[in-house]
Design a protein around this nucleic acid. Structure first.
Length: 355
RNA sequence: UGGGGCGUCGUCAAGCGGUAAGACACAGGAUUUUGGUUCCUGCAUUCGGAGGUUCGAAUCCUCCCGCCCCAG
């Protein structure tokens, strides 16, 4: 089999199309894989059009069952538990890259690629791959990929990592792929209308979401919520509380079906406990405390922190921020960086309030 | 049914004769491969009601309605 053969995950969007095109230009034998998650809004025709234009074969895997089990059920269960899920990060590990590798293996293609704005670096001395931020800081998507391991990274190519969104868009136009790029902003891919609250209600009819009180830290009842799944930490809009100043969701008390709110200055936290940590560099896992930048949400600039392992395998860590951060939410990803390099990341379990 | 106070956007609230601030809430949009945040825009031709005075009233007068407080 051709050593320079690659299976590209194509969605039909600009990023993956340009990435595939780029690989072809570089001389790769390129094939496309469309991952059909079986949910509405998942339109394979765009992917087919894209592959036609760059003249590569397109394969499709239908993963509705796995997607539902691994992503949608998780998504709903997290909200039901009063947590804030990050389906994209999970999907990358459990669906996207998993099936890319599976299909690449089946077809004897050594490499896989996607349109993510990230880079991969190889340390020849240590034989280790690193995941780096994309050059375009505005579009960097490394936050969503912290789950990737050496296995994936060793076979991955990110053609867009070294360019900017602007350049990719320009290429798309130049190549005649379409300047329109219809739905550039896709939020949760399986919820086309972006109304995740309604999605949860209609999807999880077995979960008895009930109304409840909205209370302050002092215990004053200031409003009512329409179910714990309708709020998330840091949220301001939709609380329907008329007051001198806005209220924000501080925490969710699932057991008492209550939502705790407070003022802007009450949102800050000084640290986290993080579980399910995966370290990209195998050498990190049993390490001593270390310093790193922690990002607690996508497009968070990152805060210098001290990271202390709580278990021997390094899968659970305590994170202490050098300066307080706003509205960290259990269920969200905490991703650790050394400059541009992703060290690893995990899932926020507890948030330690400031003061 | 004696005295006093108050009734301005969903909520709080400026205005005190010169032609309805602001905040919160809400709605829409921008941003965005998670949620949230943030930003932009919109949001009372009308001031409890009816009359009157005035060139002109939410602002002054009269009556009515509705609240609140103190007395009964």
């Amino acid at each position: 089999m051709d050593r320079k053969s690659v299976l590209v995950g194509v969605s039909g969007g600009v990023d993956s199309t340009v990435a595939a095109c780029q690989l072809k230009t570089e001389g790769y034998h390129v094939e496309g894989l469309y991952i059909d998650n079986g949910f509405p809004g998942c339109a394979s025709s765009d992917a087919a059009d894209a592959c036609n234009k760059i003249n590569i074969p397109l394969h499709t895997v239908y993963v509705a069952h796995a997607f539902r089990k691994g992503i949608v059920d998780y998504f709903v269960a997290e909200y039901a538990a009063g947590r804030t899920p990050n389906p994209c990060a999970i999907c990358n590990k459990v669906i996207k890259f998993k099936y890319l590798i599976e299909e690449a293996d089946r077809r004897g293609l050594p490499y896989i690629a996607t349109g993510h704005y990230c880079r991969i670096e190889h340390d020849d001395l240590r034989g280790i791959f690193s995941l780096l931020c994309g050059i375009d800081a505005k579009k960097d998507q490394s936050y969503f990929l912290f789950c990737l391991g050496q296995e994936e990274l060793s076979r991955l190519i990110f053609p867009n990592g070294g360019t900017t969104k602007e350049a990719v868009r320009a290429t798309s136009i130049a190549e005649g792929f379409g300047s329109a790029s219809p739905r550039e902003s896709q939020e949760i891919c399986f919820i086309p209308d972006n109304d995740y609250r309604r999605f949860i209600e209609s999807f999880a009819t077995d979960i008895p979401f009930r109304q409840g009180d909205i209370v302050t830290l002092q215990g004053d009842i200031v409003g009512r919520h329409r179910g714990i799944h309708t709020v998330t930490i840091g949220q301001r809009r939709g609380l329907n509380i008329a007051s001198e100043r806005p209220y924000y969701v501080l925490s969710i008390d699932k057991d008492h079906n209550r939502v705790i709110v407070g003022r802007d200055e009450e949102q800050w936290c000084s640290g986290l406990s993080v579980s399910g940590v995966s370290w990209i560099d195998p050498g990190f896992s049993k390490n001593t405390p270390q310093r790193a930048f922690t990002r607690i949400r996508y497009r968070h600039r990152g805060v210098l922190s001290s990271i202390t392992p709580l278990t021997e395998d390094g899968r659970r860590v305590a994170v202490t921020f050098d300066s307080p951060q706003k509205a960290a939410a259990p269920g969200q990803a905490a991703v650790f960086y050394d400059g541009d390099r992703v060290l690893g990341g995990g899932w926020i379990e507890e948030v330690i309030p400031n003061d």
